[in-house]
Write a protein that binds this DNA or RNA. Structure first.
Length: 241
DNA sequence: AGCACA
């Protein structure tokens, strides 16, 4: 019987291949989410995802270092994302962007691959949109507006005055199956992370504490609106003290 | 289920 290395029969690679991804997620959002999830393990050079028949529900995340890919596989294997556990492996082949860096890139000729019976002009276009690489500068840009999956704010009139910035975040609109472990996996990537607290009696909410308010603010900006499941963009505010 | 990079 296979013993310790069950999940990876494949050789180490800079790129992880993810499948079992909920196919309803829009490509741009998927890529943002993957960046939010995986940039904690190291510099991401590119994230690729397509919506063609053959490739939907899958994505490739290219890391600058293979060690980051290994950590990502170990730490995020089966992470419940939009109701489905992510399945993560090393990619089978080297990504072009890596081959270009190490000088082994050979442009390929045979591109008959995804041939989908006409009518997929639009899909092709969308796939291209999504395939455009995150440039290296994009990575590490945790707190920037690029990561803000925001617009849930448009939903309803919450009359309360917001609490002033502080080191504790108040998370709302979590799906009921959310566990502290899941939240920790998301929030621990931001510096200063201390702990997650959930209240058994009140499903759907959580508190996440950082060492200071600058750090909690970075985490808020990075994960605002993040969806663990499609229907629940998380709402992050500062906790009332 | 399905391993790409026009």
């Amino acid at each position: 019987m296979a013993d310790m290395n069950v999940s990876s029969e494949l050789p180490v690679n800079n790129t992880i291949y993810i499948n079992n991804i909920n196919e309803k997620i829009k490509l741009e959002e998927l890529k943002k989410s993957l960046n939010a999830i995986f940039s904690q393990f190291g510099t991401i050079l590119e994230i690729l995802a397509f919506k063609t028949l053959k490739h939907k529900g899958q994505a490739w995340v290219v890391f600058e270092d293979a060690s980051a890919a290994s950590r990502a596989i170990q730490k995020m294997q089966n992470f419940p994302f939009h109701d489905k556990p992510m399945r993560i492996q090393y990619a089978r082949t080297k990504s072009d962007i890596i081959a270009k860096k190490d000088g082994t890139f050979v442009p390929r000729e045979k591109k008959k691959r995804h041939e989908e019976k006409g009518k997929k002009r639009k899909e092709q276009h969308d796939a291209n949109q999504a395939a455009m690489g995150l440039n290296p500068a994009y990575n590490g840009a945790y707190g920037t507006p690029q990561l803000s999956q925001i617009p849930y704010m448009a939903k309803s009139a919450v009359p309360e005055a917001p609490a002033p910035p502080n080191s504790i975040l108040f998370i709302q609109n979590l799906p009921h199956q959310t566990t502290p472990m899941m939240l920790q996996m998301l929030f621990c990537q931001y510096p200063g992370f201390k702990e997650v607290r959930m209240v058994e009696a009140k499903p759907g909410i959580a508190f996440v504490e950082y060492e200071n308010e600058a750090q909690s603010t970075q985490a808020m900006m990075g994960l605002q609106g993040f969806k663990i499941v499609p229907e629940n963009p998380m709402s992050i505010t500062y906790a009332k003290k």
